[in-house]
Amino acid sequence: MIRILLAEDQALVRGAIATLLDFEDDFEVVAAAGDGAEAVKLAMTLQPDVALIDIEMPKVSGLEVVEQLRTRVPTCKCIVVTTFARPGYMQRAVKAGACGYLLKDAQVEELAAAIRRIVAGERVMSPALMVAAMESANPLTEREIQVLRLAATGQTTRELARALSLSEGTVRNYLSEVFSKLNASSRQEAIKIAEAQGWI
């Protein structure tokens, strides 16, 4: 029996997935969490075989849940199930430790087959996103991503410099490099491009 934890903030979607998976003879949905913090807590307590995790959840994001479970519940295989068809999100999910990345428009048979394959030791990624990921590799460095992610919160250059323990000139240099790589003319445009790709 494959024991499954669901982490999905929309109650209707959470209930529908749980019901559909329970029809499978070799699956048991042992818990369903409505936010990321609850998902981590339940996983640590119940030690499921698989966790199906949405990306955007309250308290703790899905990507953070994947990262935490990799160290706290290493036997649990994490599968991101999301509406976000963004190559950058998939790349970040894999880097965080996800064994699968599937879109919510997949058929339940596809999801069930993916769960079984992942439990058997495979990785399963959305084929369409795999192609898109190869075509649109993230050109930004980790530091540039960090600067842009903080800039997206609305902080000024001075505030960014203070938060990152850098000089204002260095922050401006990082932003200038980001603009160049993304072919953006402003901070807002760079943020919009990076968010659309799932890079920040």
Rank of each mutant, 00 (worst) to 15 (best):
K77P: 08
V65E: 08
A163Q: 11
G15L: 04
A85P: 09
M134T: 13
A161R: 06
L148M: 04
V147S: 02
A51F: 06
R123P: 08
T153Q: 06
T141M: 13
Q197K: 14
K77L: 05
V119Q: 12
D105L: 01
Q188C: 04
T82Q: 08
R70F: 05
I17Q: 10
E159W: 07
M130E: 15
C99E: 08
E38M: 02
I191L: 09
G62L: 13
K181N: 13
E24P: 03
R3F: 00
F27D: 01
A93G: 00
E159H: 05
V73C: 04
V119R: 14
G36K: 00
A7I: 04
A93F: 07
A98V: 03
A114W: 01
A152I: 00
Q188R: 10
L21V: 12
P87C: 06
A114Q: 00
Q155I: 03
F27E: 03
S61I: 10
R3H: 14
E189M: 13
R143H: 07
E135D: 11
V73K: 02
G62P: 10
S61T: 14
A18I: 01
K77S: 13
V65A: 06
A43E: 04
L140G: 00
E64W: 11
M44Q: 10
S167P: 06
A114C: 09
L46K: 12
R158A: 14
G62C: 10
F23M: 13
P127S: 09
I17Y: 09
N173L: 10
L63C: 09
C76T: 13
G169Y: 03
A133M: 15
L150W: 01
E56T: 11
V29A: 04
A16E: 09
L140H: 00
E159C: 07
Q10L: 13
E177A: 15
E189Q: 15
P58N: 14
G198I: 10
P139G: 14
A106K: 05
T153H: 03
S167V: 00
K95G: 01
F23E: 12
L20Y: 09
E122G: 12
E144L: 08
T71M: 06
